[in-house]
């Protein structure tokens, strides 16, 4: 499989806190990669560097062979890396439909400049409706985004990243704030959409059941370093990972475990 995202020697620190130290990750196309680690371990910093929100103090990030390290978030999005947010970033006064139509409009306005994926929407509203159904948001179509329940907000947030047709989707804690019984429903829908559009996924997650179920590779972060990298079963069983990441307070399967 071809490497789609290649981060080499990333370094970043905030004052005395090391948020990234010699991070090396090569992600293959169509992979589903889970990023685990306690709060402050450097997972979100990694996402922020990939999307251009933070600039690494050293190291490079290549996307499909192109150096994207110096680019702004907007340019990186246009190339095909999109993200969702831990706290959903919606257009709160607009309807769910309009939230997604904004994205369709941006893709349409960019036309052939939209990365290599010149795939303008022929019928924007229909495309969005299809997407809403896929994400189980159909019944919320004309509701104001600011008034949605939290789980629905999370879904819309992810749909908003998907609507601009990414090649790589970065999800920052997609199931945080989502009730235990909804988590798998949410992830099932997201993963179905991702598979359909052949999108590579990296997601930050605290729930190890979710990680075990959906990923084919796991990166464990600890104090800005990657301390384990491999198949989920291997990484989740790793002694260091169990001690530093999952911790002795690891909850039994199925329970919401993170702080």
């Amino acid at each position: 499989m071809a490497v789609i995202l290649d981060a080499r020697g990333l370094e970043k620190s905030f004052g005395a806190v090391t948020a990234a130290s010699n991070i090396n990750v090569a992600v293959e196309q169509d992979a589903v990669v889970g990023l685990i680690g306690s709060n402050g371990a450097g997972k979100t910093t990694f996402l922020n560097m990939v999307t251009g929100y933070l600039k690494p103090s050293a190291g490079t990030i290549h996307f499909e062979g192109r150096d994207i390290t110096p680019l702004a978030p907007r340019e990186i999005t246009r190339l095909g890396i999109c993200r969702s947010f831990q706290i959903p970033q919606l257009f709160n006064t607009m309807t769910v439909l309009d939230n997604l139509l904004v994205g369709v409009g941006i893709v349409a306005a960019a036309g052939s400049k939209w990365g290599a994926r010149n795939s303008a929407y022929d019928d924007p509203v229909k495309a969005v409706d299809t997407m809403l159904d896929q994400f189980g948001l159909g019944s919320y179509r004309n509701r104001q985004a600011g008034l949605l329940p939290e789980g629905t907000r999370k879904l819309l947030d992810i749909a908003m990243a998907m609507v601009v047709r990414p090649r790589i989707l970065l999800l920052d804690e997609p199931t945080s704030g989502v009730s235990a019984d909804e988590k798998f429903v949410l992830m099932d829908m997201v993963m179905a959409a991702v598979k359909e559009h052949k999108v590579t996924v990296l997601f930050v997650e605290h729930d190890m059941d979710v990680v075990a179920r959906y990923t084919d590779r796991v990166l464990a972060f600890y104090e800005g370093r990657i301390i384990a990298d491999g198949a989920p079963a291997t990484v989740l069983d790793d002694v260091e990972v169990r001690r530093f990441v999952i911790g002795s307070h690891a909850a039994p399967a199925g329970a919401a475990s993170h702080a």
Binding site: D98, L101, G105, A109, M160
Partner: peptide, 20 residues
């Protein structure tokens, strides 16, 4: 499409940038 961006910008500039 261009016009719809106005309301989006009012609501959430960060998201607009992250939509490209």
């Amino acid at each position: 499409h261009q016009g719809r961006l106005a309301g989006a910008i009012k609501d959430n500039e960060l998201r607009v940038e992250y939509m490209g």
